[in-house]
Design a protein around this nucleic acid. Structure first.
Lengths: 255, 255
DNA sequence: AGCGGTGTTCACTGATGGAGAACAACAGTT
DNA sequence: AACTGTTGTTCTCCATCAGTGAACACCGCT
């Protein structure tokens, strides 16, 4: 039962608190974690030794760290989605041609996830990380292909929190952007999520459902003017279309 | 405290049983999991709703599945290891030149883990999966650079279980193989782990510690004779050496 | 050796996770 | 449109168990 936040198994919540703390600091000791998480040393010790027994944590040189069992879990969540296999090679060539970072974003419970990334250089959000649907090129191109009501519901529950001064915070403006994105199959992000970071994205739609979006992104000074608006844009849209077809082929061809 | 298997937090064990069941069947319902795991529906429900609240599971179309938070955790465990960045690009070119599957294997608590893989086609063990040190080319090349005592300890605790009829099960034979691997910096696997599957591997050693191994692997009919013994072998060894140097540069250069 | 700092163990107990049955919400069938 | 078999959800109650806090063991230091 517990409080009305849905967490009925407290122990599990603590376990994941430990896991996340371990992820954030790569490796840590019992006392360190105990003081960070406001738990007794023995509690932390119990959770850690359980995780060790299960194979999700291991001790190396006197310090605990997450094992690669999480890599196995994580890659499994990626590979169960057919879009991954369909998009992989196209994204690589897109990254080579543009020389920029290329992302594959999929929707998941009212946010987007960076499922796969190609290309060198830093990115404001790590691969596997989440992105809000209203404040990113990829997110908006997914939102654009959802029902009118679904967008309403999204705005109602989440609002349009501004992440930078350029984030779209007005519902009407968002609506009009979404309409044009739906027409053009392209969406842009000029610093709406991260200052000085720009994106071009195009959705992948199967049976009227937006199943993913691909995006090319880079620092503002490299993704400027004609290069952003035309050169890259064309490539992104055509690549998205190509992936869409590949996805259709693989689903019908193998049935 | 519970039995003497080290699991002191039962709830955490059940949670991960649920998680692993979800991974294995991609998505599932409450009753299905309950009967599979021999738990009451309410117990499973509690764990699932907790995981949902924590963001590690989500409901889609009436069925529960793992979210990509696990991808974030998993990729984090990969990226904390400097070998990953150092090896990535060299492995890609190696995969292109050979046309075969290329693996990066790192040691972790008495087994190896496929940390990264490049190349198309099926592989007996998934990326992120584990491999025993005595029955794989990569594993043996890691074992070869461990202390004499460490190898003893390994054999004592694990024995040399045979996975195929060609697995090395005799400690003396293993010793002699390890010696020559240490000299040549190459190890071979001709169906020792999976029937009709062959491998060439070379270790990456830093300060006398084997931190990883790279391997090229493929079905026996493609990795035969001179191609295996000479062409590929040379490339694997030189690539490993290159990665080793790159690793040294990055650690000294950035300090 | 002694000392600060670890990680580990121990017994106790109040909170809590789990069984089981009753309830609700569906989907498919006739 | 009612029915039926199934699934997910809620509920209550009790035994279990996770967590506290202190004592213990184990380092690496100087």
């Amino acid at each position: 039962m517990g409080d009305e936040d849905g967490i009925s198994v407290q122990a599990t919540a603590t376990t994941f608190a430990v896991i996340e703390a371990l992820r954030d600091r790569n490796h840590a000791g019992v006392t360190e974690l105990a003081s960070e998480l406001d738990l007794s040393k023995s509690a932390v010790h119990n959770h850690l030794s359980t995780l060790v027994a299960l194979g999700y944590v291991c001790r190396t040189s006197g310090s605990y760290q997450l094992t690669h069992e999480f890599l196995r879990l994580g890659l499994a969540t990626r590979e169960r989605n057919p879009i991954y296999d369909a998009a992989k090679s196209d994204l690589r060539t897109l990254a080579e041609t543009t020389g920029e970072i290329v992302n594959l974003v999929v929707p998941e419970a009212d946010h987007g996830v960076y499922l796969y990334r190609v290309g060198d250089g830093a990115h404001p959000i790590p691969e596997g990380g989440q992105v809000s649907l209203h404040a990113s090129a990829a997110g908006k191109s997914i939102l654009a292909f959802r029902d009118y009501d679904a967008v309403d519901a999204y705005v109602d529950t989440h609002g349009l929190p501004s992440l930078t001064e350029r984030t779209v915070t007005d519902p009407a403006t968002l609506r009009s952007q979404l309409r044009s994105i739906r027409d053009q199959r392209v969406s842009f992000d000029r610093g709406e999520q991260t200052p000085d970071w720009q994106c071009v994205a195009s959705p992948i739609v199967v049976e009227d459902e937006p199943v993913a979006a691909i995006s090319v992104s880079g620092p503002a000074d490299r993704m400027r003017g004609k290069r952003l608006e035309e050169d890259v844009t064309g490539l992104v849209v055509s690549t998205a279309k190509a992936i869409e077809l590949e996805l259709l082929d693989s689903s019908t061809g193998e049935a």
